Structure formats: structure tokens, C-alpha cells
Amino acid sequence: MLRIVLADDAVLLREGLVALLARFNHTVVAVGDAIALAAAVDDERPDVVVTDVRMPPTFTDEGLHAAVDLRLRHPGLPVLVLSQYVATAYAAKLLESTDSGGVGYLLKDRILDVAEFVDGVERVAAGGCVIDPEVVRQLLTRRHDPLTRLTPREREVLALMAEGRSNAAITTSLTISEKVVGKHINSIFTKLDLPADSTDDHRRVRAVLTYLQPHDQKPAARRGPS
């Protein structure tokens, strides 16, 4: 029986995973944000941590950032990241630390068997390494061209940022809401390895510098509805 700290801001998914792991006789302490995750690990000293990447307040990479920090504070702490996408800002750091305890990174949409998921949790807790092949592929791709992780719309937003446009100006150019622009920019920061511990202005400059580096098939910004 394992003692697990589980972090996910989606209530239904979190409670579903608690019930699922309980079926396999594991004890789960569930939390909904990165701050609560750190506190629970300090209090519970779990056998393994299972965490999502995106959590409040910015919904970028707080969960993965917390996992990396926890591995530094608690050497050997097994961590399994369970997410919908690959956050490269901290994923490489986490996966490079396999010599100090179990590590895993699984994509939610690619888990097709409950028993295999639970087996993955148990293997990580035992010091093993469980990584979805798609995670490896995306990390290798990112080493060659950081812009390949962006969606077409995110590349358009970044192109307008490179032109010096404000969020309001991008909203007008692409006829989308400022809230949607903000979400795209947060996603761009995450995918270009610009973690949340930097200021937004600093990350914006670094994102533009990344865009201006030579890359193949870099599109001009298109104007139109989302």
C-alpha cells in the first residue's frame, strides 16, 4: 500500500483518481494547487507524488515547477506528472533527475488502461522511470526548434508580439478577446521554456527574441477570427 499525494485542480478528475487508487488499496491525500501540494508533501512525506502541470493561479506550469522544487527539497521523492500536454520548461529538469528517485510523465489522453496507470504509479514509487513516448518525442523536437511546440494561432500571436503590439492591439488584429490573447501568451511562455518565476515583461522580451532567431517556415501574423 502506498501513501500518495495527488495534485489536480479539476475536482471531478481529482476525486475520480482518489477513488481509483483507493480500489488498489492506496491511501491518497488530494489537493488542488501547487502551494497545497508543497504543504502536503512536507506534512505527509508520501511514497510518491502524482501531479498535474497546470494549476492556479496562472494555469501554466505551477504543478511541474513545484515538482522540481520538491525533488530538490526532498531528494529521492518519486514524482509522476500526469498532464494533458508536455510542459518543456521544467520537464527536462525533472526527467534528468532520475538518478535521485523514481520519475514519470504520462499524458492523460493516452492512458487507455486503468491497471497500466496504477502500475505506472507503483513503478515510479519503487524508483522506476515511466515516460510516455510522446513526451520524449516532443522534448527531442524542442531541442531543434522551440517554435514547433506552438499552435498556428500561438505563432500568430507571437508574430504580433514581435511587431511590438500590445495585448489590446493583438485583440483587435486577430478579432479575439483579450482574455483569449492572455491565454495564448501564457501558453507561449510555457512552451518556450519561460517559467513563471520570471516577470511577464522579461518573458515577453525573451519570447520575441526566440521568435526572431532563424527558424524554418516562420509565418507572418494573419488577421482573422479565432
Score class of each variant (00 low, 15 high):
Ile176Thr: 14
Arg149Glu: 12
Lys179Ile: 12
Gly101Met: 04
Ala196Trp: 01
Ser198Asp: 12
Asp113Pro: 10
Tyr90Ile: 04
Ala162Arg: 08
Thr210Met: 06
Gly104Tyr: 04
Thr151Phe: 10
Thr98Trp: 11
Ser97Arg: 14
Val181Pro: 04
Asp201Ile: 12
Arg149Gly: 15
Ala220Glu: 15
Asp145Thr: 08
Ala92Gln: 14
Thr210His: 08
Thr190Arg: 10
Gly127Tyr: 05
Lys108Trp: 08
Gln138Ala: 02
Tyr211Glu: 02
Ala89Asn: 11
Ala207Glu: 03
Glu134Ile: 09
Glu134Ala: 13
Lys179Pro: 00
Val180His: 14
Asp119Gln: 13
Ser198Gly: 09
Lys191Met: 10
Val124Ser: 05
Val205Asp: 09
Ser100Gln: 11
Leu192His: 07
Leu94Thr: 09
Val136Tyr: 06
Leu150Asp: 07
Arg204Gln: 11
Val124Glu: 02
Val135Lys: 03
Glu122Tyr: 01
Lys179His: 10
His202Gln: 11
Asp99Met: 09
Glu96Cys: 10
Thr175Gln: 13
Ala159Trp: 09
Ser173Thr: 11
Val157Trp: 07
Gly164Glu: 06
Val130Arg: 04
Leu106Ser: 03
Gly104Ser: 04
Thr175Cys: 08
Glu122Phe: 02
Val103Gln: 01
Gly128Cys: 04
Ala169Ile: 00
Ser198Leu: 15
Arg203Ile: 06
Ser100Ala: 12
Asp197Trp: 15
Pro219Gln: 11
Thr172Asn: 06
Gln217Phe: 12
Phe117Val: 07
Leu150Met: 08
Val124Ile: 05
Arg143Ser: 10
Val157Ala: 14
Pro133Ala: 06
Val205Phe: 03
Ile188Asp: 02
Asp119Ala: 15
Tyr90Gly: 05
Lys191Asp: 08
Tyr90His: 15
Ala168Tyr: 11
Arg149Cys: 00
Phe117His: 05
Glu96Ala: 15
Arg203Lys: 14
Gln217Cys: 05
Ala89Phe: 02
Glu134Val: 14
Asp200Val: 15
Val181Asn: 07
Val135Cys: 05
Glu122Gln: 13
Thr148Lys: 12
Gly120His: 02
Arg149Val: 00
Gln217Ile: 02
Thr151Cys: 00
Cys129Trp: 05
Thr171Pro: 02
Ile131Gly: 01
Pro133Trp: 10
Leu158Trp: 08
Thr141Glu: 15
Leu174Ala: 05
Asp109Ile: 01
Ala169Gly: 11
Gly182Trp: 03
Asp201Asn: 08
Val114Gln: 13
Tyr105Met: 02
Ser97Phe: 00
Glu116Cys: 03
Gln213Tyr: 01
Thr175Ser: 15
Ser100Glu: 12
Ser97Lys: 05
Ala89Leu: 04
Arg149Thr: 06
Thr141Asn: 11
Ser198Glu: 14
Ala92Tyr: 01
Arg123Ile: 04
Leu209Met: 11
Leu106His: 02
Gly182Phe: 07
Asp132Ile: 02
Leu192Ser: 08
Val118Phe: 05
Leu160Glu: 06
His144Arg: 15
Arg123Glu: 12
Arg155Gly: 11
Leu174Tyr: 04
Arg206Lys: 14
Cys129Tyr: 10
Ala220Asp: 15
Arg123Thr: 13
Gly101Trp: 01
Lys108Tyr: 06
Gly120Ile: 03
His144Lys: 14
Arg204Asn: 06
Ser97Tyr: 00
Gly127Val: 06
Tyr85Phe: 06
Asp200Gln: 11
Arg110Val: 08
Asp216Ser: 13
Gly104Trp: 03
Val86Glu: 02
Lys179Gly: 13
Asp201Lys: 11
Ser100Phe: 06
Leu139Cys: 07
Val180Glu: 15
Pro219Ala: 13
Val136Thr: 14
